[in-house]
Each structure stands twice: as structure tokens, then as C-alpha cells.
Write a protein that binds this DNA or RNA. Structure first.
Lengths: 336, 336
DNA sequence: TCCACATGCTGACACGTGTCAGTGAATCTC
DNA sequence: GAGATTCACTGACACGTGTCAGCATGTGGA
């Protein structure tokens, strides 16, 4: 008897009522009239027996579970990702559901996972393959995916250029990743940088991708820097794909004895955990991961039919002013 | 008809057999004799209908799910954590189960989560509260938790001292965190540092904790450095709780115009993502997150009754030699 | 010829829950 | 006081699966 978990039948027996009544009380149904006395008796019995409803039977009966699945495909890592995860966890918990994160090992693994766990809605921080989309559709699991090319996605990079141009920089380079798997994220940012420069009447930025997603090759960055700083119209500022690339840029500059920010300004993106610890401390753009998480969740709730469709996402981002950006050095070749 | 998902009854109808036969075929039972022809007919029908077994009913019937829950409580973040998560995901998937990660928002949240998801085993990277342990026990969910004070846990810090002492350092300081929530992790390392120094006949290390778990206060670190380097027997090397603290130490040294490594050696722990990007590049200790994940999984499989109890965990770790550690400067007060 | 046994398959049950129609009693309405 | 309505509660079903006893049919041995 002991050792085995208690079911709603046990609670009913202890409270001296039927199982149906127990279910009505514990699910707080208002269309059934239940006097306070029996209500309290049921609640007391449930508490005494440490009753926890059986997740599987509940899901079976209701046709859908209370689980929200966050699919974490190959998103380039930053503290922002865990910030989004934490905020989503809180939001989902507040709605009486639970969020779990699945680190997708590969595109083919989804089917196996769905045979073990049927979420009521799936949220992906990335765009999935069409096979995965089809699979979710066949199992009628609604999917919410962040649109990587949505209007407004360019805001953070726009802010980078804003800051550099505001300090008087003219000749700007953009350091990004050449990692193929990251191009989904990198390409829109590169486009946004070019557009931002054009819009401000700046010359087109010099763009270079370096290999390595999680480990940036400092030597490759150094070679780029040499190229960019060479010649009669040298670059005075480098805007970077993320803080990791910016840190690599600071390291390369240090190796080349280029002083940041007096000779070269560097700006990052993410306000990652190590950004305040570089020397000079990294000026960067802070995204609003909580804001993003709230948007994802409102999309999900819309899919669940609980709320009307939310407005289009307007990202939030702001400059975090530190020490790696300043006005450019006086040019030896004055313009015009 | 279309739009609704197909069940094993649909597969049975299409293959012209009973539901029991379908179940036998799809679960690959060997004790039932099923000729190849019907077997293939069933498999073809399942494929045609895109049959995916219903997770909830399967779990209800079998009494337990195929889900492994990784409880990620307030572990100080580093790429090691995601490395462990990824390795565990792969191991669990290889056993026909699925791993999901739950970022615990608070100690009281576990019950709500367990009402939505009943794992066959739970793995925690941290020690849980006794209430949480009791709860899991009552629901008979086996729990595997990393023992933070197990013998051998001190190996990484031991290696730090090894490296510093091997270079001739004598007067060593230990920079750790004073964050209360992190003391579970920090205290054993501090003990290990002291023991390692004593064992080598070094003087007891100077120990200081600085506030901030994810954001280390560089100014506080700088004040410590000033104290440590003052006086007639100054510290020549700083061993750090993790790479984040080491990066803060490098930043503080830079602010104080102390040259690393010529005037002061600094060693980190974790080989975090930014460790190769500091200047000087950080010498640190690389843990074996995959090795750790494999141990956790073998413990879990033992709990599931599939394997005998594994041997005690022997952590793996090795020095990653970069540029922040070198021999100490010649002392103005020669020993003895 | 009869029994024993293997083969190939099926009907029926159970898991624990949520829900709906229904039931006896009490109360209200005219 | 008969009928209508509300109150408080219950019995029975369904969700989709895994499993087990059992049922024909063939096959071999004595």
C-alpha cells in the first residue's frame, strides 16, 4: 500500500466522496456546485495523501499535455539564450504549464522525442527544417518560431552603426562569422549593417567573415585587421557580429599593438557575460531577452487559442557604453 | 478524418490485423512469433499513416515514461554546462529515451512540473532541497545528483596549484566568490586549494571572496589585488574560482598597471569560451564535461536497473597552457 | 487415430484521469 | 400540493496503449 503513489480514487475514499467530486474540486470547476465543507474535506484528503495527479493519464484524457517544448537548435551561445529560457520558464509556469528545453541533437531526432513527449505547443528559437514542420503539423502540435528575417531584426546592428557614426566614424568594418551553420543568424545582420551605413550616407562597410562559431580564430581576425588598417583610407571602427567576435577583435588588436579605442573603436553585440571584463571594457548592444521571451510566449498563447494575435515584434535594444568606442583619430588624409 | 492523428487502431485496420499484433510488431517483441509477411505489412501501414505512438497513453500503460529530466538549478554558467547537456542528450537518445532540461525557477516549482511530466529518472547537477528529494521519492522517481563533495572533486583546483607550484610560485592567493548561492560549489574548491598548498609545503593561501555570481565586481577584485601585492611577502600568483573570476582578475591587474604574467600569474578554471580571447590569454584548467555526463548517465542507468552500480567518479581535468602563468619575478626578499 | 505442441493471431482488460448524463432530495413557484 | 427548479453528488464511459490468456489451425510423434 505505502510506497505506491496515491491516486484520485484514494483521495475520494479518504474524503468519503466519489472520484468525480474529487476531480471537480481539484480542478476548481465553477459550473458544479460544491459546498465549502466537502470542498475542504477533499482538499484536506489530497494534502494528507500528498496527491499529485498522474501526468500521463491527465494528458491522455485531455488529449493534450501541459508541457511547452522549447526547441534549442544550434543557436550561437550567449547568456541571452539562458535569459530567454529563464523568462519563458517563468511565464509558462505562471500559466499553469511547464516549460522544458530540448537541445536538439540533430534534425532527425524530433520524431523520437515526440514519441516520448507530446507538448501542447512548441517554441523554436530557430527555423526548423520542413520535415520537422510537417511532423509537428501531422501531430497537430502548434509551432512558434522566431522569424529571423522579420522587420525590426536589424535594430541591434543599426544601433551599432548609430553609435559609431555618432562618434564621427566614417570608414567602418564589419567582422562576422563565416560558419555556415550560423549564416541564418549572420546574414540578416550583415544586410542590416550595409543598409544602416547606406542610410547614413556612409561608405559601404568592409565586411569579412572569420571561421569558427564558438571559438573565434584570433590570428584570422588579426590578418583582417592588418588589411583593414592598411592603405590610405584605413578603417577606424569595427562592428562585430557578437561579443565573442568583438573580444577576438580586441585580442587581435592587442597582439598587433593597436590601441583600442584611441586608434580603433570596437563595438560588440549581446552584452555577454564577459563584456565588462575585457580591457578596454567592451562597448556593446544589449538586447532585451525578456522582451523577446514575452513575445514568443504571446505568440504561443495565441496558438493555444487563449489570446488574439499579438502585434508584430519590435525588438528592444540599447547601447551599453563602456570603453572600446571613442571618436576616431584625426585622419592624416582629411576628407575631400 | 484527416487532420486527426492516426492511432494504432488505424494501422491495424490498414494492415488487416488486430491492434495487439501491431503493438507486437512495433515494439519488436521476440516472444511472439510473427511471420515476416505480416510484419512487413504492419510496418508499411505504420509508415504510410505516419504513425507516431501517443506518448501519454504509452506512459500511462507502462506506468513510466521514456523521459529523463535534467534539473538545472542555479549552476554557475559556463560552456561546460551546455557541454554536459549535449552529451547527456546524445547518451539518453541512444538508449531510446529523450532528455529534457528543466531550468528550475525555484525550489517550490518542482511539484507543479511533476504534475505535467513524469520522468523515469531525474538527474540534477546540483543537490536538491530535502523537500524536493521527498517529493521525488513519494512519486518514486529515482534521482541522480552530482555529489559536490565527493573525493576527487578537488582535482581541478589541485591542478591549478600544481601548475603554479611547478613554476616556482610560493605565495599564492585564491580568488573566489562570496555569493551565498554559489557556496555549495565554491566551498569544496576552497578547501581543496588549502589542502593542496599544505600538501606541497606551501604557506596557506590567502583567500578572498568577491561578491557577484555572474557579474564579478572588478573594483572589488582590484582592492584585493592591492592588498595581496602589498607588504614584504607579496603574492605572485592568483588561482581563481572560475574563468570569469580570472578574467576579472586580469582586468583588475590591467587597471592597476600590473603586468600579467611577468609581475603576477593568473590561472582560471573551466576553459570557458572567452578564455583564449583575454590578453594575456588565460591559462586555465579544462574539465571533462563529456566524461562527467557519461558518469551521470551510468548512475542513472543503474537507478533504472539496467546496469550494475558504476565505480566512483574520477574526474578528468588537464591544464590548458596559454599565457597568463609564468615563473614568479625574483623576490626582493630572498627566502631564508 | 489421438494427443502434444508450435504457430499466428485476437478479444478483452487495465492504467488514472476528466466529463457528462442522471439521480434522489430539498427548495421554490403558483 | 403538484410541478418545476436547484443542489450535491455519483456511475459509467472514453482517451490510446501494452499485455495476457486463449483460440483456431497446422504439424509432428507414438
Amino acid at each position: 500500500m505505502t510506497g505506491s503513489r496515491s491516486t484520485s480514487a484514494d483521495v475520494a475514499r479518504r474524503a468519503g466522496v466519489s472520484r468525480a467530486t474529487v476531480s471537480y474540486v481539484l480542478n476548481g470547476r465553477t459550473d458544479q456546485s460544491i459546498p465549502l465543507s466537502t470542498r475542504n474535506r477533499v482538499l484536506a484528503a489530497a494534502r494528507d495523501l500528498d496527491y499529485v495527479p498522474h501526468a500521463a493519464s491527465r494528458a491522455l484524457r485531455r488529449g493534450t499535455s501541459n508541457l511547452v517544448l522549447l526547441i534549442n537548435a544550434g543557436v550561437p551561445w550567449s547568456t541571452n539564450v539562458t535569459d530567454v529560457e529563464d523568462e519563458l520558464t517563468a511565464l509558462v509556469a505562471a500559466s499553469g504549464r511547464s516549460l522544458v528545453v530540448w537541445r536538439r541533437p540533430g534534425a532527425a531526432a524530433l520524431q523520437g522525442m515526440l514519441a516520448d513527449l507530446e507538448p501542447c505547443v512548441a517554441i523554436s528559437m530557430d527555423t526548423l527544417t520542413s520535415e520537422e514542420n510537417n511532423l509537428l503539423g501531422r501531430l497537430s502540435v502548434p509551432l512558434v518560431a522566431a522569424d529571423l528575417a522579420a522587420p525590426g531584426t536589424g535594430l541591434p546592428t543599426e544601433l551599432q552603426i548609430d553609435r559609431l557614426a555618432g562618434q564621427g566614424h566614417h570608414r567602418i568594418a564589419y567582422l562576422t562569422t563565416s560558419d555556415r551553420a550560423l549564416q541564418r543568424f549572420a546574414a540578416p545582420r550583415t544586410d542590416a549593417i550595409v543598409a544602416a551605413c547606406v542610410r547614413r550616407g556612409l561608405p559601404e562597410p568592409l565586411i569579412a567573415g572569420v571561421p569558427g562559431g564558438l571559438t573565434v580564430d584570433v590570428a584570422a581576425v588579426a590578418r583582417q585587421l592588418v588589411g583593414w588598417l592598411d592603405g590610405r583610407d584605413p578603417v577606424t571602427a569595427v562592428s562585430c557580429f557578437n561579443d565573442l567576435h568583438a573580444a577576438a577583435c580586441l585580442a587581435a588588436a592587442s597582439d598587433l599593438r593597436i590601441e583600442v579605442p584611441t586608434e580603433l573603436s570596437v563595438i560588440g553585440l549581446d552584452d555577454d557575460i564577459f563584456a565588462p571584463l575585457t580591457r578596454p571594457a567592451l562597448t556593446t548592444v544589449r538586447l532585451g531577452p525578456q522582451h523577446f521571451a514575452r513575445h514568443l510566449w504571446s505568440l504561443a498563447r495565441h496558438q493555444l487559442g487563449e489570446t488574439p494575435a499579438p502585434a508584430a515584434f519590435t525588438p528592444t535594444a540599447h547601447i551599453v557604453e563602456r570603453a572600446s568606442v571613442t571618436a576616431p583619430p584625426p585622419s592624416p588624409f582629411p576628407k575631400r
